[in-house]
Design a binder for these strands. Structure first.
Lengths: 233, 233
DNA sequence: CGGTTTTTTGATCACAGTCAAGTTAGGTGG
DNA sequence: CCACCTAACTTGACTGTGATCAAAAAACCG
Protein backbone atom coordinates (compact mmCIF):
# COMPACT_ATOMS: atom_id res chain seq x y z
CA UNK A 1 0.00 0.00 0.00
CA UNK A 2 3.11 2.20 0.14
CA UNK A 3 5.31 3.96 -2.36
CA UNK A 4 3.40 4.17 -5.62
CA UNK A 5 6.21 5.71 -7.50
CA UNK A 6 4.48 7.80 -10.11
CA UNK A 7 1.86 8.93 -7.63
CA UNK A 8 4.69 9.96 -5.38
CA UNK A 9 6.17 11.99 -8.20
CA UNK A 10 2.84 13.57 -8.92
CA UNK A 11 2.39 14.84 -5.39
CA UNK A 12 5.95 16.06 -5.05
CA UNK A 13 4.93 19.63 -5.77
CA UNK A 14 1.24 19.15 -5.39
CA UNK A 15 1.02 20.52 -1.90
CA UNK A 16 1.22 24.04 -3.21
CA UNK A 17 -1.93 23.52 -5.21
CA UNK A 18 -3.77 22.91 -1.96
CA UNK A 19 -3.16 26.54 -1.25
CA UNK A 20 -6.33 27.37 -3.08
CA UNK A 21 -8.28 25.40 -0.55
CA UNK A 22 -9.16 27.44 2.45
CA UNK A 23 -8.93 24.42 4.68
CA UNK A 24 -8.95 20.69 4.02
CA UNK A 25 -7.55 17.28 4.75
CA UNK A 26 -4.84 15.84 2.53
CA UNK A 27 -3.45 12.37 2.17
CA UNK A 28 0.23 12.01 1.25
CA UNK A 29 2.29 8.91 0.40
CA UNK A 30 5.55 8.10 2.21
CA UNK A 31 8.72 10.09 1.54
CA UNK A 32 6.87 13.08 0.19
CA UNK A 33 7.94 16.67 0.69
CA UNK A 34 5.25 18.61 2.55
CA UNK A 35 7.10 21.89 2.23
CA UNK A 36 10.66 22.76 1.38
CA UNK A 37 13.23 25.22 2.57
CA UNK A 38 12.86 28.61 0.86
CA UNK A 39 9.14 28.09 0.25
CA UNK A 40 6.96 31.00 1.30
CA UNK A 41 5.29 30.07 4.58
CA UNK A 42 1.65 30.29 3.62
CA UNK A 43 0.28 27.13 5.19
CA UNK A 44 -0.08 25.59 8.60
CA UNK A 45 -0.45 21.84 9.08
CA UNK A 46 -1.75 19.48 11.69
CA UNK A 47 -0.80 15.85 11.37
CA UNK A 48 -3.82 13.57 11.72
CA UNK A 49 -2.20 10.29 11.03
CA UNK A 50 1.25 8.91 10.23
CA UNK A 51 4.81 10.10 10.88
CA UNK A 52 6.75 13.00 9.39
CA UNK A 53 10.07 14.81 9.86
CA UNK A 54 11.26 18.38 9.91
CA UNK A 55 14.92 18.74 8.90
CA UNK A 56 17.66 20.96 7.56
CA UNK A 57 20.11 20.07 4.82
CA UNK A 58 23.67 21.39 5.01
CA UNK A 59 26.22 22.50 2.48
CA UNK A 60 28.24 19.36 3.15
CA UNK A 61 25.32 17.06 2.41
CA UNK A 62 24.63 16.20 6.03
CA UNK A 63 21.09 16.29 7.35
CA UNK A 64 19.93 17.39 10.79
CA UNK A 65 16.46 16.27 11.77
CA UNK A 66 14.92 18.92 13.99
CA UNK A 67 11.86 17.07 15.07
CA UNK A 68 9.90 13.88 14.60
CA UNK A 69 6.24 14.69 14.00
CA UNK A 70 3.57 12.37 15.38
CA UNK A 71 -0.21 12.49 15.01
CA UNK A 72 -1.62 15.59 16.64
CA UNK A 73 1.44 17.75 16.05
CA UNK A 74 1.09 21.14 14.40
CA UNK A 75 3.87 22.49 12.21
CA UNK A 76 4.72 25.03 9.54
CA UNK A 77 3.91 28.00 11.75
CA UNK A 78 6.01 30.94 10.68
CA UNK A 79 4.09 34.04 11.70
CA UNK A 80 6.32 36.27 9.63
CA UNK A 81 4.70 36.02 6.22
CA UNK A 82 7.47 37.81 4.41
CA UNK A 83 10.44 35.58 5.18
CA UNK A 84 11.21 32.12 3.85
CA UNK A 85 11.00 28.79 5.60
CA UNK A 86 14.27 27.62 7.02
CA UNK A 87 13.73 23.89 6.86
CA UNK A 88 11.99 21.06 5.03
CA UNK A 89 9.15 18.79 6.14
CA UNK A 90 8.81 15.29 4.71
CA UNK A 91 6.50 12.37 5.34
CA UNK A 92 7.89 9.07 6.62
CA UNK A 93 4.79 6.91 6.32
CA UNK A 94 1.59 7.53 4.46
CA UNK A 95 0.08 10.50 6.18
CA UNK A 96 -3.11 12.45 6.46
CA UNK A 97 -2.84 16.05 7.48
CA UNK A 98 -5.08 19.00 7.97
CA UNK A 99 -4.11 22.05 5.98
CA UNK A 100 -4.83 25.67 6.90
CA UNK A 101 -4.12 28.89 5.13
CA UNK A 102 -1.83 31.00 7.23
CA UNK A 103 -4.22 33.91 6.74
CA UNK A 104 -7.27 32.11 8.02
CA UNK A 105 -5.33 31.10 11.09
CA UNK A 106 -4.45 34.73 11.63
CA UNK A 107 -8.07 35.73 11.21
CA UNK A 108 -9.09 33.10 13.70
CA UNK A 109 -6.79 34.74 16.19
CA UNK A 110 -8.30 38.12 15.56
CA UNK A 111 -11.78 36.93 16.39
CA UNK A 112 -10.79 34.44 19.10
CA UNK A 113 -8.02 36.00 21.20
CA UNK A 114 -7.69 32.86 23.30
CA UNK A 115 -6.33 30.98 20.31
CA UNK A 116 -3.39 33.34 20.07
CA UNK A 117 -2.46 32.37 23.58
CA UNK A 118 -2.97 28.73 22.76
CA UNK A 119 -0.64 28.94 19.80
CA UNK A 120 1.96 30.58 22.00
CA UNK A 121 1.41 27.84 24.50
CA UNK A 122 2.07 25.22 21.86
CA UNK A 123 5.15 26.99 20.57
CA UNK A 124 6.54 27.34 24.07
CA UNK A 125 6.07 23.62 24.58
CA UNK A 126 7.89 22.94 21.36
CA UNK A 127 10.68 25.19 22.48
CA UNK A 128 10.94 23.29 25.70
CA UNK A 129 11.26 20.09 23.70
CA UNK A 130 13.95 21.69 21.56
CA UNK A 131 15.84 22.71 24.69
CA UNK A 132 15.86 19.15 25.83
CA UNK A 133 16.89 17.86 22.43
CA UNK A 134 19.74 20.34 22.17
CA UNK A 135 21.04 19.43 25.60
CA UNK A 136 20.75 15.80 24.71
CA UNK A 137 22.83 16.12 21.58
CA UNK A 138 25.30 18.56 23.02
CA UNK A 139 26.11 17.02 26.34
CA UNK A 140 25.31 13.32 26.43
CA UNK A 141 27.04 10.20 25.14
CA UNK A 142 25.81 8.42 22.03
CA UNK A 143 24.29 5.68 24.15
CA UNK A 144 22.36 8.09 26.35
CA UNK A 145 21.13 10.07 23.37
CA UNK A 146 19.71 6.98 21.75
CA UNK A 147 18.06 5.66 24.90
CA UNK A 148 16.63 9.08 25.62
CA UNK A 149 15.20 9.37 22.15
CA UNK A 150 13.62 5.92 22.19
CA UNK A 151 12.01 6.57 25.56
CA UNK A 152 10.82 9.98 24.51
CA UNK A 153 9.29 8.66 21.34
CA UNK A 154 7.64 5.76 23.13
CA UNK A 155 6.29 8.10 25.72
CA UNK A 156 4.84 10.42 23.09
CA UNK A 157 3.15 7.47 21.38
CA UNK A 158 1.76 6.35 24.70
CA UNK A 159 0.18 9.72 25.24
CA UNK A 160 -1.60 9.23 21.91
CA UNK A 161 -2.80 5.79 22.99
CA UNK A 162 -0.65 4.33 20.24
CA UNK A 163 1.64 2.37 22.53
CA UNK A 164 1.16 -0.30 25.13
CA UNK A 165 2.98 -3.15 26.76
CA UNK A 166 6.30 -1.66 25.78
CA UNK A 167 5.57 -1.82 22.06
CA UNK A 168 4.73 0.79 19.46
CA UNK A 169 5.06 1.49 15.77
CA UNK A 170 8.44 2.87 14.76
CA UNK A 171 8.74 3.50 11.03
CA UNK A 172 12.08 5.33 11.16
CA UNK A 173 15.16 3.86 9.49
CA UNK A 174 18.43 3.78 11.40
CA UNK A 175 19.73 6.59 9.24
CA UNK A 176 16.80 8.75 10.34
CA UNK A 177 17.55 8.04 13.97
CA UNK A 178 21.18 8.91 13.25
CA UNK A 179 20.16 12.25 11.77
CA UNK A 180 17.95 13.01 14.75
CA UNK A 181 20.76 12.32 17.18
CA UNK A 182 23.67 13.70 15.15
CA UNK A 183 25.35 10.31 14.99
CA UNK A 184 26.56 8.12 12.15
CA UNK A 185 24.22 5.32 11.06
CA UNK A 186 26.90 2.76 11.97
CA UNK A 187 27.03 4.01 15.52
CA UNK A 188 23.25 3.86 15.82
CA UNK A 189 23.33 0.30 14.56
CA UNK A 190 25.96 -0.78 17.04
CA UNK A 191 24.17 0.88 19.93
CA UNK A 192 20.84 -0.69 19.02
CA UNK A 193 22.56 -4.07 18.94
CA UNK A 194 24.02 -3.38 22.36
CA UNK A 195 20.70 -2.29 23.84
CA UNK A 196 19.08 -5.39 22.46
CA UNK A 197 21.82 -7.58 23.95
CA UNK A 198 21.44 -5.81 27.28
CA UNK A 199 17.69 -6.35 27.24
CA UNK A 200 16.93 -2.63 27.31
CA UNK A 201 15.21 -1.89 24.01
CA UNK A 202 14.89 -3.28 20.54
CA UNK A 203 13.82 -1.98 17.14
CA UNK A 204 12.79 -4.42 14.45
CA UNK A 205 10.30 -4.70 11.63
CA UNK A 206 9.17 -1.14 12.09
CA UNK A 207 8.37 -1.60 15.75
CA UNK A 208 9.97 -0.30 18.92
CA UNK A 209 10.13 -2.59 21.95
CA UNK A 210 10.98 -1.07 25.31
CA UNK A 211 12.23 -4.14 27.15
CA UNK A 212 13.22 -2.64 30.50
CA UNK A 213 11.81 0.81 30.85
CA UNK A 214 13.05 1.49 34.36
CA UNK A 215 16.61 0.47 33.74
CA UNK A 216 16.72 2.34 30.43
CA UNK A 217 15.20 5.44 32.01
CA UNK A 218 17.83 5.39 34.67
CA UNK A 219 20.87 4.69 32.54
CA UNK A 220 19.90 7.46 30.14
CA UNK A 221 18.75 9.99 32.72
CA UNK A 222 15.45 10.27 30.94
CA UNK A 223 12.69 12.26 32.52
CA UNK A 224 9.16 12.59 31.28
CA UNK A 225 8.55 15.93 29.69
CA UNK A 226 5.31 17.82 29.56
CA UNK A 227 4.11 17.57 26.03
CA UNK A 228 1.16 19.14 24.36
CA UNK A 229 -1.50 16.58 25.23
CA UNK A 230 -4.26 17.84 22.94
CA UNK A 231 -4.02 19.01 19.35
CA UNK A 232 -4.46 22.71 18.78
CA UNK A 233 -6.24 23.00 15.48
CA UNK B 1 31.86 49.01 39.23
CA UNK B 2 31.24 45.23 39.03
CA UNK B 3 31.00 42.36 41.46
CA UNK B 4 30.14 43.73 44.87
CA UNK B 5 30.20 40.41 46.56
CA UNK B 6 27.73 40.78 49.39
CA UNK B 7 25.30 42.68 47.23
CA UNK B 8 25.52 39.79 44.82
CA UNK B 9 24.61 37.41 47.59
CA UNK B 10 21.72 39.55 48.67
CA UNK B 11 20.09 39.55 45.28
CA UNK B 12 20.57 35.84 44.70
CA UNK B 13 17.01 35.03 45.64
CA UNK B 14 15.69 38.52 45.57
CA UNK B 15 14.09 38.26 42.19
CA UNK B 16 11.15 36.38 43.59
CA UNK B 17 10.31 39.32 45.79
CA UNK B 18 9.77 41.35 42.64
CA UNK B 19 6.80 39.15 42.03
CA UNK B 20 4.71 41.49 44.11
CA UNK B 21 5.34 44.25 41.62
CA UNK B 22 2.89 44.22 38.82
CA UNK B 23 5.45 45.52 36.40
CA UNK B 24 8.76 47.27 36.83
CA UNK B 25 12.39 47.61 35.87
CA UNK B 26 15.02 45.77 37.86
CA UNK B 27 18.77 46.12 37.97
CA UNK B 28 20.82 42.97 38.65
CA UNK B 29 24.56 42.53 39.24
CA UNK B 30 26.66 40.07 37.19
CA UNK B 31 26.35 36.31 37.73
CA UNK B 32 22.93 36.53 39.32
CA UNK B 33 20.21 33.97 38.90
CA UNK B 34 17.13 35.51 37.29
CA UNK B 35 15.06 32.39 37.63
CA UNK B 36 15.97 28.77 38.26
CA UNK B 37 14.88 25.40 37.01
CA UNK B 38 11.80 24.12 38.86
CA UNK B 39 10.60 27.63 39.68
CA UNK B 40 6.96 28.27 38.89
CA UNK B 41 6.82 30.30 35.69
CA UNK B 42 5.04 33.41 36.88
CA UNK B 43 7.13 36.14 35.30
CA UNK B 44 8.12 37.30 31.85
CA UNK B 45 11.25 39.38 31.27
CA UNK B 46 12.58 41.71 28.66
CA UNK B 47 16.26 42.52 28.78
CA UNK B 48 16.88 46.26 28.54
CA UNK B 49 20.61 46.30 28.99
CA UNK B 50 23.43 43.81 29.51
CA UNK B 51 23.94 40.14 28.67
CA UNK B 52 22.35 37.03 30.15
CA UNK B 53 22.22 33.28 29.53
CA UNK B 54 19.59 30.56 29.55
CA UNK B 55 21.00 27.13 30.34
CA UNK B 56 20.36 23.61 31.58
CA UNK B 57 22.44 21.75 34.13
CA UNK B 58 22.89 17.99 33.74
CA UNK B 59 23.21 15.11 36.17
CA UNK B 60 26.87 14.76 35.22
CA UNK B 61 27.65 18.39 36.06
CA UNK B 62 27.86 19.55 32.48
CA UNK B 63 26.08 22.70 31.38
CA UNK B 64 24.35 23.37 28.08
CA UNK B 65 23.69 27.00 27.27
CA UNK B 66 20.50 27.24 25.26
CA UNK B 67 20.68 30.85 24.31
CA UNK B 68 22.66 34.04 24.78
CA UNK B 69 20.31 36.90 25.66
CA UNK B 70 21.07 40.37 24.36
CA UNK B 71 19.28 43.67 24.97
CA UNK B 72 15.77 43.56 23.58
CA UNK B 73 15.29 39.83 24.05
CA UNK B 74 12.21 38.54 25.85
CA UNK B 75 12.43 35.37 27.91
CA UNK B 76 10.73 33.34 30.59
CA UNK B 77 7.60 32.78 28.55
CA UNK B 78 5.99 29.53 29.58
CA UNK B 79 2.30 29.85 28.81
CA UNK B 80 1.45 26.76 30.80
CA UNK B 81 1.17 28.18 34.29
CA UNK B 82 0.95 24.83 35.98
CA UNK B 83 4.23 23.25 34.95
CA UNK B 84 7.73 24.09 36.13
CA UNK B 85 10.49 25.87 34.29
CA UNK B 86 12.92 23.56 32.62
CA UNK B 87 16.01 25.75 32.66
CA UNK B 88 17.84 28.51 34.48
CA UNK B 89 18.51 32.12 33.46
CA UNK B 90 21.54 33.98 34.78
CA UNK B 91 23.06 37.39 34.17
CA UNK B 92 26.54 37.70 32.68
CA UNK B 93 27.06 41.44 33.09
CA UNK B 94 25.20 43.92 35.17
CA UNK B 95 21.75 43.98 33.68
CA UNK B 96 18.56 45.93 33.69
CA UNK B 97 15.42 44.09 32.79
CA UNK B 98 11.75 44.76 32.57
CA UNK B 99 9.59 42.40 34.61
CA UNK B 100 6.00 41.44 33.88
CA UNK B 101 3.58 39.25 35.70
CA UNK B 102 2.61 36.35 33.51
CA UNK B 103 -1.04 37.13 34.25
CA UNK B 104 -0.90 40.72 33.12
CA UNK B 105 0.69 39.57 29.89
CA UNK B 106 -2.18 37.16 29.42
CA UNK B 107 -4.70 39.89 30.12
CA UNK B 108 -2.98 42.11 27.60
CA UNK B 109 -3.54 39.41 25.02
CA UNK B 110 -7.20 39.17 25.88
CA UNK B 111 -7.77 42.84 25.23
CA UNK B 112 -5.30 43.20 22.36
CA UNK B 113 -5.58 40.13 20.13
CA UNK B 114 -2.74 41.33 17.93
CA UNK B 115 -0.27 40.88 20.75
CA UNK B 116 -1.04 37.18 20.89
CA UNK B 117 0.04 36.93 17.31
CA UNK B 118 3.11 38.99 18.02
CA UNK B 119 4.15 36.73 20.84
CA UNK B 120 3.73 33.75 18.56
CA UNK B 121 5.77 35.59 15.99
CA UNK B 122 8.57 36.10 18.47
CA UNK B 123 8.47 32.50 19.65
CA UNK B 124 8.56 31.24 16.09
CA UNK B 125 11.63 33.38 15.45
CA UNK B 126 13.27 31.95 18.51
CA UNK B 127 12.46 28.48 17.33
CA UNK B 128 14.06 29.25 14.03
CA UNK B 129 17.18 30.34 15.87
CA UNK B 130 17.12 27.13 17.90
CA UNK B 131 16.86 25.11 14.69
CA UNK B 132 19.96 26.77 13.42
CA UNK B 133 21.79 26.32 16.69
CA UNK B 134 20.90 22.65 16.86
CA UNK B 135 22.08 22.04 13.32
CA UNK B 136 25.22 23.93 14.08
CA UNK B 137 26.08 21.81 17.08
CA UNK B 138 24.95 18.55 15.58
CA UNK B 139 26.47 18.66 12.17
CA UNK B 140 29.38 21.06 11.97
CA UNK B 141 33.03 20.92 13.03
CA UNK B 142 34.24 22.70 16.13
CA UNK B 143 35.85 25.40 14.00
CA UNK B 144 32.69 26.09 12.03
CA UNK B 145 30.58 26.16 15.17
CA UNK B 146 32.76 28.78 16.75
CA UNK B 147 32.97 30.96 13.67
CA UNK B 148 29.26 30.69 13.15
CA UNK B 149 28.56 31.69 16.74
CA UNK B 150 30.91 34.67 16.65
CA UNK B 151 29.39 35.94 13.42
CA UNK B 152 25.88 35.39 14.69
CA UNK B 153 26.57 37.25 17.89
CA UNK B 154 28.29 40.11 16.10
CA UNK B 155 25.42 40.32 13.69
CA UNK B 156 22.88 40.45 16.51
CA UNK B 157 24.83 43.23 18.20
CA UNK B 158 24.97 45.10 14.94
CA UNK B 159 21.22 44.99 14.65
CA UNK B 160 21.08 46.65 18.05
CA UNK B 161 23.51 49.35 16.91
CA UNK B 162 25.97 48.00 19.45
CA UNK B 163 28.61 46.97 16.95
CA UNK B 164 30.58 48.70 14.28
CA UNK B 165 33.84 48.47 12.42
CA UNK B 166 34.11 44.79 13.24
CA UNK B 167 34.13 45.38 16.98
CA UNK B 168 31.61 44.79 19.74
CA UNK B 169 31.39 44.05 23.43
CA UNK B 170 31.76 40.38 24.27
CA UNK B 171 31.60 39.68 28.00
CA UNK B 172 31.47 35.89 27.73
CA UNK B 173 34.28 33.77 29.14
CA UNK B 174 35.71 30.97 27.02
CA UNK B 175 33.95 28.46 29.22
CA UNK B 176 30.63 30.11 28.39
CA UNK B 177 31.35 29.90 24.69
CA UNK B 178 32.29 26.26 25.21
CA UNK B 179 28.94 25.57 26.88
CA UNK B 180 27.08 27.30 24.08
CA UNK B 181 28.82 25.20 21.45
CA UNK B 182 29.05 21.93 23.35
CA UNK B 183 32.83 22.00 23.27
CA UNK B 184 35.52 21.81 25.93
CA UNK B 185 37.02 25.12 27.07
CA UNK B 186 40.44 23.97 25.87
CA UNK B 187 39.16 23.40 22.37
CA UNK B 188 37.55 26.84 22.31
CA UNK B 189 40.83 28.34 23.42
CA UNK B 190 42.82 26.59 20.72
CA UNK B 191 40.33 27.53 18.02
CA UNK B 192 40.27 31.17 19.09
CA UNK B 193 44.06 31.19 18.91
CA UNK B 194 43.90 29.72 15.43
CA UNK B 195 41.32 32.22 14.22
CA UNK B 196 43.42 35.01 15.58
CA UNK B 197 46.51 33.64 13.83
CA UNK B 198 44.55 33.28 10.60
CA UNK B 199 43.33 36.86 10.86
CA UNK B 200 39.68 35.85 10.98
CA UNK B 201 38.46 36.90 14.41
CA UNK B 202 39.77 37.69 17.85
CA UNK B 203 38.36 37.91 21.36
CA UNK B 204 40.22 39.85 24.00
CA UNK B 205 39.55 42.09 26.94
CA UNK B 206 35.85 41.46 26.73
CA UNK B 207 35.64 42.52 23.12
CA UNK B 208 35.01 40.64 19.90
CA UNK B 209 36.91 41.67 16.78
CA UNK B 210 35.73 40.33 13.43
CA UNK B 211 38.90 40.72 11.40
CA UNK B 212 37.79 39.28 8.06
CA UNK B 213 34.06 38.96 7.94
CA UNK B 214 33.78 37.69 4.39
CA UNK B 215 36.34 34.97 4.74
CA UNK B 216 34.95 33.90 8.09
CA UNK B 217 31.40 33.88 6.76
CA UNK B 218 32.48 31.67 3.91
CA UNK B 219 34.62 29.21 5.82
CA UNK B 220 31.87 28.71 8.41
CA UNK B 221 28.92 28.67 5.99
CA UNK B 222 27.30 31.40 8.00
CA UNK B 223 24.18 33.00 6.69
CA UNK B 224 22.35 35.91 8.17
CA UNK B 225 19.23 34.82 9.96
CA UNK B 226 16.05 36.81 10.37
CA UNK B 227 16.00 37.92 13.93
CA UNK B 228 13.38 39.76 15.83
CA UNK B 229 14.39 43.33 15.03
CA UNK B 230 12.16 45.11 17.51
CA UNK B 231 11.46 44.25 21.12
CA UNK B 232 8.02 42.94 21.87
CA UNK B 233 7.17 44.26 25.30
C1' DC C 1 13.55 -14.17 -8.49
C1' DG C 2 16.72 -10.18 -9.14
C1' DG C 3 17.88 -5.69 -7.85
C1' DT C 4 17.99 -2.16 -4.50
C1' DT C 5 18.01 -0.42 -0.05
C1' DT C 6 18.97 -1.15 4.63
C1' DT C 7 21.36 -3.34 8.16
C1' DT C 8 25.32 -5.52 10.07
C1' DT C 9 30.21 -6.18 11.13
C1' DG C 10 35.14 -5.20 11.06
C1' DA C 11 39.32 -2.31 10.84
C1' DT C 12 41.29 2.04 11.09
C1' DC C 13 41.44 6.98 11.92
C1' DA C 14 40.79 11.65 13.62
C1' DC C 15 38.61 15.18 16.06
C1' DA C 16 37.89 16.83 20.14
C1' DG C 17 38.07 15.59 25.31
C1' DT C 18 40.73 14.95 29.31
C1' DC C 19 44.44 15.56 32.43
C1' DA C 20 48.11 18.27 34.06
C1' DA C 21 51.02 22.17 34.58
C1' DG C 22 52.24 26.83 33.69
C1' DT C 23 51.12 31.68 32.46
C1' DT C 24 48.48 35.81 32.40
C1' DA C 25 45.14 39.06 33.92
C1' DG C 26 41.97 41.11 36.94
C1' DG C 27 40.39 42.34 41.31
C1' DT C 28 41.48 43.12 46.39
C1' DG C 29 43.76 44.76 50.20
C1' DG C 30 47.80 46.63 52.39
C1' DC D 1 50.86 51.96 43.77
C1' DC D 2 52.38 47.63 44.40
C1' DA D 3 51.94 42.76 46.03
C1' DC D 4 49.04 39.10 46.33
C1' DC D 5 45.47 35.89 45.23
C1' DT D 6 42.29 33.87 42.54
C1' DA D 7 40.05 33.03 38.31
C1' DA D 8 40.71 32.73 33.56
C1' DC D 9 43.45 31.55 29.88
C1' DT D 10 47.21 28.94 27.52
C1' DT D 11 49.92 25.05 26.11
C1' DG D 12 51.37 20.22 25.73
C1' DA D 13 50.83 15.18 25.79
C1' DC D 14 47.82 11.57 25.61
C1' DT D 15 43.33 9.19 25.18
C1' DG D 16 38.87 7.70 23.65
C1' DT D 17 34.54 8.09 21.49
C1' DG D 18 32.44 8.01 17.60
C1' DA D 19 33.35 8.81 12.31
C1' DT D 20 34.84 6.91 8.22
C1' DC D 21 35.85 3.43 4.90
C1' DA D 22 34.90 -0.98 3.11
C1' DA D 23 32.51 -5.09 2.34
C1' DA D 24 29.16 -8.71 3.42
C1' DA D 25 24.55 -10.18 4.86
C1' DA D 26 19.75 -9.45 5.25
C1' DA D 27 15.36 -7.40 4.24
C1' DC D 28 12.31 -5.41 1.12
C1' DC D 29 9.89 -4.74 -3.22
C1' DG D 30 8.53 -4.94 -7.73
Amino acid sequence: MRALDHFKEATKGAVTEIEGARLGVRRLPPDTTVYAERDPPSLVFTLFDGWALRFKLLENGKRQILNVLLPGDTFGVQPDMTSELDHTAETVTEVSLCVFKQESVMQLFQSQPTYGWQLSWMLAHEQSAMNEHLTNIGRRTAFERLGFFLLETYSRMERRDAAGNGVCEFPLRQIDVADVLSLSPETVNRLLAQMSRDGLARVSHGRLYILDRNRLTETCHFHERFLSPKPLL
